[in-house]
C-alpha cells in the first residue's frame, strides 16, 4: 500500500488536536481524582461551559478570544468551587459511586439547562484574527489555529505538571493526596486545598472548552460527546499519574488519527478496543497506581 504523505499528515494533525483536548481533560480528571477521590462526570459539562462562557463574553460583553482564554477558566473554576463547597465536600470518605452519581447528575442538569435555552445546534465562534489562515509546510497545509491549540495545550499541560510535581504547593497537594489527615495535622488547610484543586481541574476543562469553540462550534452537548472518549483515555492511562495522563491523552489522539488513515472504519472504536485490552492486561491502567 502506498502512503499518501499529505493525507497521513492531515490525519496525524487531527489526531494531535484531539489529543490536545484529551490531555487537558484527562489531566483535570486525574488531578481531581487524586485529591477528591471523585470521578468527575461533570467534566464534559464544565468543558462545554468554558466554550459558552467564551461565547457570552464575546457576544454579550464584547470581550474577545484572548481575554476569554483567561476569564472563562476562572469563571467556570469558581462555579466548580461552589459545587465542591456546597455538594461534593459532603461525599468525602464515601464510596466512589456517590461522587460518580452526583457529578453525573450535575452534568445532566447543566447540559439540560443549556439545551433548554440554546437547543442542540452549534453556535459559531470565530477564529481570532491573529490565528486565521495557515502555513504551507511543504508536505502539508497547517491551519494556524490548529497548531496553536496543540502548542497551547502542551504548554498548559506541562505547566500543570510542573506546578504539581516541582513546586512547594504541589508537594502539599501530593502529600494531601496520600494522607490528608496528617497534612491537615501539620497546619495546612486541606479542605481549602481540595476546593482549589477542584477549581483547577474544572478550570483546565473550561480552558479546553474555549480552545475548542472556534473548531467545534459551541453546543450544549459538545462535552457529553467528548467525555466518553476522555474517560476511555483515563482508563487506559490510569488515574494515578499527571504525566501519564498527559502522554496518554496525546498518544491516543495520534493513534486515533493513524487509524483514520489506515483503517477509517475503526477510528471511532480504536480507543475503546485499546481500553478493553488494557483493562484485561493491566486493570489499573498503563501508568496507574495499583491501589
Amino acid at each position: 500500500m502506498s502512503i499518501n504523505l499529505q493525507a497521513l499528515m492531515a490525519q496525524l494533525l487531527v489526531g494531535l488536536i484531539n489529543g490536545s483536548f484529551y490531555a487537558l481533560l484527562s489531566l483535570g480528571l486525574a488531578v481531581i481524582f487524586g485529591m477528591l477521590n471523585i470521578i468527575n462526570f461533570a467534566h464534559g459539562a464544565v468543558y462545554m461551559m468554558g466554550a459558552f462562557c467564551a461565547y457570552f463574553l464575546l457576544n454579550v460583553m464584547g470581550i474577545g478570544y484572548w481575554p476569554a482564554l483567561i476569564i472563562a477558566p476562572i469563571v467556570v473554576g469558581i462555579f466548580g468551587m461552589i459545587l465542591e463547597r456546597t455538594m461534593l465536600q459532603w461525599l468525602a470518605g464515601l464510596d466512589h459511586l456517590y461522587g460518580l452519581l452526583l457529578t453525573f447528575g450535575m452534568a445532566l442538569i447543566i447540559q439540560g439547562v443549556f439545551q433548554n435555552y440554546f437547543g442542540s445546534s452549534g453556535l459559531p465562534y470565530a477564529i481570532p484574527a491573529e490565528l486565521q489562515g495557515g502555513m504551507n509546510l511543504g508536505f502539508m497545509f497547517l491551519p494556524i489555529y490548529r497548531g496553536w491549540v496543540v502548542i497551547c495545550s502542551l504548554i498548559v499541560c506541562l505547566a500543570t505538571w510542573f506546578l504539581i510535581e516541582r513546586t512547594r504547593l504541589g508537594a502539599n497537594l501530593r502529600a494531601a493526596t496520600e494522607n490528608p489527615t496528617l497534612v491537615r495535622a501539620f497546619g495546612i488547610n486541606v479542605p481549602r486545598m481540595i476546593t482549589l484543586t477542584y477549581g483547577l481541574g474544572v478550570g483546565l476543562a473550561a480552558l479546553a472548552g474555549v480552545l475548542s469553540a472556534p473548531i467545534n462550534q459551541v453546543r450544549p452537548l459538545m462535552g457529553a460527546d467528548l467525555i466518553i472518549v476522555v474517560f476511555a483515555v483515563v482508563v487506559i492511562g490510569g488515574m494515578g499519574s499527571i504525566m501519564g495522563s498527559i502522554i496518554t491523552g496525546f498518544a491516543l489522539g495520534i493513534v486515533e488519527g493513524l487509524t483514520k488513515y489506515f483503517y477509517p472504519e475503526a477510528s471511532n472504536t480504536v480507543v475503546f478496543v485499546l481500553m478493553v485490552l488494557v483493562l484485561l492486561v493491566k486493570p489499573s491502567g498503563l501508568t496507574g497506581r495499583t491501589t
Binding site: 512547594r168 502529600a175 496520600e178
Partner: peptide
C-alpha cells in the same frame, strides 16, 4: 487539627507518615 497545629502542637505519628510521592527535602519542608 490544622488550627490546633497552628497553636504550636506537632505530631509525629507511630507509622511515621513519610510521604512516598515526596522526596526527603519536600517531606522536610512540608
Amino acid at each position: 487539627s490544622d488550627k490546633i497545629a497552628r497553636l504550636g502542637v506537632a505530631f509525629c505519628p507511630e507509622e511515621r507518615g513519610i510521604f512516598a510521592s515526596l522526596d526527603v527535602r519536600e517531606n522536610l519542608m512540608l
